[in-house]
Nucleic acid binder design. Structure first.
Lengths: 245, 245
DNA sequence: GAGTGGTCTAGACCACCAA
DNA sequence: TGGTGGTCTAGACCACTCA
């Protein structure tokens, strides 16, 4: 009789293994953002499983917003470039729900080195090179967010002030088109804080004005952290929307 | 030949119809919170569809946290009473990630009538009777949240200060056991605000101290709004966690 | 061992889209 | 009209729980 212990301990559904294979193809760049991946039937043949099993793997990636299904057309690699989903991670909306024009003003862009805290957060060694960006985001001409962004310099080799300034507010679309790095999820930690001198001046507020502090770590394929960000937001006419399920 | 136009216009997947039927049984109280629902095979026989179709409907309700599947045991109606998921909608955690003891101190509990704003938010008529509760939540002995809760009086008939005070912090477990009203989702809107007199006193802060304002509307089966809530939170040692996908 | 949910298959048919 | 994803079925077998 066959010893099933090992089999049982290492049991992993087929569709889960297929999901890993698909993710590897995405990491490897076999299918780039916006492109169509092979049909379910082709994938089933390639991996030698039934269409239903491929379907379940693709479904999982689709609910994670990594793939996008379009009936009658095909399945596509999600992208931040697409219209309509540009500011996917920006949850701040105006109190009256109006559409707003976003402007992006670069304050600074310089190199630095990772201390132990950022080394841990971004999964780097202490002393690894970093890029530090500070910018001001304005909604309809009024400055509302003071952003402090920290990136690992190696994967973003060649980034500079021009590239940051050129994009129209969405850093993630730029990461994707310029560096092939696609962010798939993020963790945020929110607090209320009092505005300090530098930030108060940039936003045109008095010192001590209450700001919504949004600390974020964004992850790319394979749950690798690729960006740390602190946004300080004026919320007298805006709010952060969230749905709990 | 049969005219398929009507069929096509009103097309709705079978599993979606099954999902509606299951939801109606939940609303009707056929299966109460914590109870086990019939097995997939039984449901398939009852609705005259295949097991796979029932499975898809149950899967959908399970991802919405309305049902809970337990392999080898059965499928159960989700409940706020269960250990471990008590404070499902409370996203506030301490900076160091420690477990904390929650205390609930009632400040006031009185009747009022809906103005146009609350009538709209809670889907009531202007002038409909309301219950207004104010309370203070303390974590490990330190007051951290000033809550203002508004409920429609009719479905919560008989609610009073005792019932609010008896529960141990989770209003939702109390709504469920005392009134059979189970909240399944909520929408939140976050801002940073300055503490005003009444709140500052209750929380032991100076006026103007930055607080995280969390406005929430909670919904029961069928997306019916059943609670409005405003929480004002001290966040110097705590933060609101959120995941973006 | 009986019962439950979980996986996997093979195949039929439907809805949607583009050429 | 052909290709894509979407639905539905029927049946086999696996993993988990509990008496």
């Amino acid at each position: 009789m066959i010893d099933e212990t090992i089999n049982s301990a290492s049991f992993r559904p087929l569709y889960d293994q297929i999901k890993v294979l698909l993710t590897q193809s995405l990491i490897g760049g076999e299918w780039r953002p916006g492109e169509m991946i092979p049909s379910e039937i082709e994938l089933a043949a390639r991996f030698k499983v039934s269409q239903g099993t491929v379907r379940k793997a693709v479904d999982a990636l689709a609910t994670e917003n990594i793939l996008i299904r379009r009936q009658g057309k095909g399945t596509f690699v999600a992208t931040h470039k697409a219209e309509g989903i540009k500011l996917r991670f920006l949850r701040l909306t105006s109190a009256d729900g109006q559409k707003e024009v976003l402007e992006n003003a670069l304050l600074s862009c310089k190199r630095s080195k990772a201390n132990s805290h950022f080394a841990k957060v971004l999964d780097l060694k202490v002393g690894a090179p970093l890029i530090e960006v500070k910018r001001l985001l304005s909604f309809s001409g009024i400055p509302l967010i003071y952003d402090h962004i920290i990136l690992p310099a190696t994967p973003f080799k060649g980034i500079n002030a021009n590239r940051v300034e050129e994009n129209h507010g969405s850093m993630y679309a730029m990461y994707e088109s310029q560096f092939g790095i696609r962010m798939i999820r993020a963790e945020e930690s929110l607090k209320a804080v009092a505005a300090e001198t530098e930030v108060a001046e940039a936003l045109g507020l008095k010192i001590g004005f209450p700001l919504l502090s949004i600390k974020r770590v964004a992850y790319t394929y394979g749950d690798r952290p690729m960006e740390w960000r602190l946004g300080l937001c004026v919320t007298d006419n805006h709010h952060y929307m969230n749905e709990l399920e």
